[in-house]
Amino acid sequence: MSKTYYEAINWNSIEDMIDKSTWEKLTEQFWLDTRIPLSNDLDDWRSLSDLEKQTVGYVFGGLTLLDTIQSESAIDAIRPDARTPHEEAVINNIQFMESVHAKSYSSIFSTLNTKAEIEEIFEWTNTNEFLQKKAKIINEIYKDGTPLQKKVASVYAETFLFYSGFFAPLYYLGNNKLANVAEIIKLIIRDESVHGTYIGYKFQLGFNELSEEEQEEMKDWMYALLFELYENEEGYTDLLYGELGWDEEVKTFLRYNANKALMNLGVEPLFPDTANDVNPIVMNGLSTGTSNHDFFSQVGNGYLLGSVEAMQEDDYTIGM
């Protein structure tokens, strides 16, 4: 018999402690782009070549598109299958922060680019074949996929697809440029780390309820989807970074993060690439610790958030 009443959420009665710990982690990590002094990067920006400026603009255009999809489509697709009311609350938090991420890129644009340049970036983003293809693939899964397939698509977006865009600001950070732009990216990466591991954990709960045959079918689908997305990312990377000569390093970075996405989902990595294969400058930038910003002149995550760190994959991994 269906219930004829509504239930109030009770945070004093927790069914899954991962929901509570993730909520606490995400709220401790809360930040807004308006507190990062992006204008302090203008001298660095002026020192970049026209090609570098164009590449950075296109990078953030692509990231804006992905975060728009994550905030507008992903969470609405995943929310109906929440196992607990506390999970639904966590998902709502994730949705809001995806909107913060998307807005943050616009803050970067408004600081570094002219109105005409911003319009050109969004025109490029909205017509780029590789961006549109991955958006279509992910969005169709959100629309028509099973609950578990939707979670896979979300984890692939959070832990893999964003990283072709994250490479550039992390690279500049390692070369002592665009520190405040990179600060925003590191805050986003810290959020995405929690989002990817949390949704991956929820996927593992459902995966473990499948029969052995169903699990093998799911794995086959997951790997096939990853291959399709990676092939598209190779084309996107060549277009975005080829002229700068960064394309092969970015592909290594992508394969490394594709493996992390699979690990979030509790399955075996696919590619041979490890952290040792990634450009060490970029790898160092992946650290999600806080920056040592001056208390009065620069408001970074060191000032706002103390020593909060992203949750580790081990916090979410369950036996499979």
Rank of each mutant, 00 (worst) to 15 (best):
N175Y: 06
N176G: 11
N176F: 13
N180C: 12
A182G: 06
A182S: 11
I184V: 13
I184Y: 06
I185N: 11
L187I: 14
I188L: 11
I189L: 10
R190W: 04
R190P: 02
D191Y: 01
D191G: 03
E192D: 02
S193I: 09
S193G: 13
H195S: 08
G196Q: 09
G200L: 03
K202P: 00
K202V: 09
Q204R: 10
N208F: 05
L210T: 01
L210Q: 07
L210Y: 02
S211K: 09
E213C: 04
E214S: 13
E214T: 09
K219E: 10
K219P: 07
W221S: 07
M222R: 06
L225Y: 01
L225H: 00
F227Y: 15
E228M: 07
E228D: 06
Y230R: 02
E231W: 03
E233D: 03
G235E: 00
D238I: 13
D238A: 13
L240H: 00
L244I: 06
G245H: 06
W246L: 15
E248D: 14
V250S: 03
K251E: 07
T252R: 14
L254P: 01
L254M: 08
R255H: 07
K260H: 13
A261C: 06
L262H: 07
L262G: 01
M263S: 13
N264A: 14
P269V: 00
F271K: 01
F271Y: 10
P272C: 06
P272T: 10
D273H: 14
T274Y: 00
A275Q: 11
V278M: 09
P280Y: 08
P280D: 03
P280L: 09
M283D: 02
M283E: 10
M283R: 12
G285Q: 05
S287Y: 12
S287L: 14
T288F: 01
G289P: 05
G289Q: 13
G289S: 15
S291L: 15
S291Y: 11
F296G: 11
V299Q: 14
V299N: 15
G302C: 05
G302F: 01
G302I: 02
L305I: 10
M311V: 06
M311R: 06
Q312N: 15
Q312H: 15
Y316C: 09
Y316P: 08
T317P: 09
I318T: 10
